[in-house]
Amino acid sequence: MSLNVNEGDRPSLLGLGRLASGELDATATAAVEGQLSDADRLVLEEIEAARSQVAPFDAAALRRRASPAPSVTEAPAVPTPANRSGRGLWLSLLALAALLLGGLVVSMQVPTTPERPDIQFRSGDALQVFVLEGKALVAWGGERLGEDTVVGFKVNATGRRGVVLLSVADDGEVDVFWPEGGRGMEPLRGQGLVPLDGTLILDDLQGSEAFVAVFDTAADTAVDQAERAFADGGLRGVRQWADATAGVDAVAVPRGQEVR
């Protein structure tokens, strides 16, 4: 089988792009124009048409994107008053939800045991992690989560229109899990802790992973904020960001060989 490798007998997409952008000198322009087929001319038309589809130029937005992550160390390192005052309420609501669901055993143990990595944290009440045991989702109790563990999430929907649930691995990789498709927000309805539709099967990541709920924020913005927070201080930076920011909650779990 003969593969369709360009031996220089036709312009590449790069060559067409350089032609379209006026980057080629007169000699090179003449050479490329001499090779243009009808299909290439269509591609040039597509490139020109793309002017109307590309985002408008915004120097400030580009510079923000290019700038290093803002420091969050000046922000308060404790939960916001709203988070603190709401803690008892959400504990109660979670307990009630567990009773209503029947068979759903909820454990709200805060993982503070010293032998665990100190990067493990729960910073608020708006995001809860559950682990599938048998056919029931039970509250994550702080144990290490290994490959193929099935996890689910509940988020506090009160006063919120939507949420983005993302994970930040300890190498800084950010993945959006809700909404599916990674754009916009997962719409929220109801009050109190509501389950996100579906669960995740964890991969073989070793180390730590933070699950972060970002409310009323588009996914691309949430990812940008998470990446900046991570750049500022790794997973601790993510924790500081979640602690200091209303509408952001994070739970970090140790990952790797399962010991449950």
Partner: peptide
């Protein structure tokens, strides 16, 4: 900003077309 604007006008749509 002027240099950026010129680069954007010249290249952004070319990159967009290709990334798409």
């Amino acid at each position: 900003d002027d240099e950026l604007a010129e680069l954007y006008d010249r290249y952004a749509h070319v990159l967009f077309h290709r990334c798409r």
